[in-house]
C-alpha cells in the first residue's frame, strides 16, 4: 500500500489527450458487436468536451478506454505523451490512481466507507491528500452534514455530489464523467453539473463527459457526436 501513498507522479498542468484510430468490439449473444470503429480525437488541456449520442453508440466504452479501465482492440490513447493502451495492468492502475477522476451515473462510492472517508479515498490513493482543499470542496458541495453517513444512506443527488467531491479532491488532470446526472431530476442535475464544471475549471482539469442530453452538452466548451462507433 505504501506505493500508492508514496505515489510520485506529478500533476500535469496541461493534459493533452490524443486518440488515434481507436477501435473496440465485444462478443455478444448476437455475434461480434463493433462498438468503436476508428475514433480519432484530440483534447487540449483544460478543455471541457461533451460526448453525445444514442444509447449504445459507444460513449461509455470510449470513456472506459480513456480511463484505462479497458483496452482497445487497436489504436492509440496518448495521454500526457504516453500511450496508455500499451501499459500493463499495474501501469494503468497507477494512471487511474494519479491522473484520472471518474464520475459515473451510479455505484461511484465505496459502500463500506462513510462520506468523509470516501471523499479522502482517491486523494490518499493518489498521494495528494489535502484536507484544506477537501474542506473547501465539502463547503462548495454543501455536503458538510453528510460526512458521517454511509453511501446507502444518501439520496442519489447527494451521492453524486460526494462522487464529484471525491474525484476533485484528488486533483486529477482528467475528469471523466459518464451520465453523471442520469439518475437526477433536472434541477438537481443542473446544479451538480454546474458544480462540476466550475470546480474542474478551477483545478484546470480536462473534462470529458458522456451525456445524451443536448441541453447539458450545450453547457460545455465543445461537443462531439458519436454514431455507430464513429465521431461525426
Amino acid at each position: 500500500m505504501e506505493r500508492y501513498i508514496c505515489a510520485i507522479v506529478l500533476i500535469l498542468a496541461a493534459m493533452v489527450i490524443a486518440l488515434r484510430n481507436l477501435s473496440k468490439s465485444y462478443e455478444t449473444a448476437e455475434g461480434r458487436l463493433e462498438v468503436l470503429r476508428g475514433i480519432d480525437l484530440d483534447l487540449g488541456a483544460g478543455d471541457s468536451v461533451a460526448l453525445t449520442g444514442e444509447s449504445g453508440s459507444g460513449k461509455s466504452t470510449l470513456l472506459h478506454l480513456v480511463a484505462g479501465l479497458d483496452r482497445p482492440d487497436s489504436g492509440e490513447i496518448v495521454v500526457g505523451g504516453r500511450d496508455i493502451s500499451k501499459l500493463d495492468d499495474r501501469g494503468r492502475a497507477a494512471y487511474r490512481r494519479t491522473e484520472v477522476g471518474l464520475v459515473f451515473q451510479q455505484f461511484n462510492l465505496v459502500p463500506s466507507l462513510d462520506v468523509a472517508a470516501n471523499l479522502a479515498f482517491h486523494a490518499k490513493l493518489a498521494g495528494r491528500h489535502d484536507p484544506a482543499w477537501e474542506n473547501e470542496l465539502v463547503e462548495r458541495l454543501g455536503i458538510g452534514p453528510l460526512l458521517t453517513r454511509y453511501p446507502e444512506q444518501l439520496s442519489s443527488g447527494q451521492q453524486q455530489r460526494v462522487a464529484i467531491g471525491r474525484t476533485l479532491a484528488a486533483r486529477p488532470g482528467l475528469v471523466l464523467a459518464d451520465e453523471p446526472t442520469g439518475n437526477l431530476d433536472e434541477t438537481n442535475g443542473d446544479a451538480v453539473l454546474e458544480l462540476m464544471l466550475s470546480l474542474s475549471k478551477g483545478t484546470g482539469s480536462t473534462l470529458l463527459m458522456a451525456t445524451h442530453s443536448q441541453r447539458l452538452a450545450d453547457r460545455l466548451d465543445r461537443q462531439l457526436h458519436l454514431r455507430s462507433g464513429k465521431i461525426t
Partner: peptide
C-alpha cells in the same frame, strides 16, 4: 463486485 469496482476504478490493481 459493487464493493470492489469503485476501488478498482480508482486505481487499485485486480491483483492487489
Amino acid at each position: 463486485l459493487p464493493q470492489l469496482a469503485p476501488v478498482w476504478a480508482m486505481g487499485v490493481t485486480r491483483r492487489d
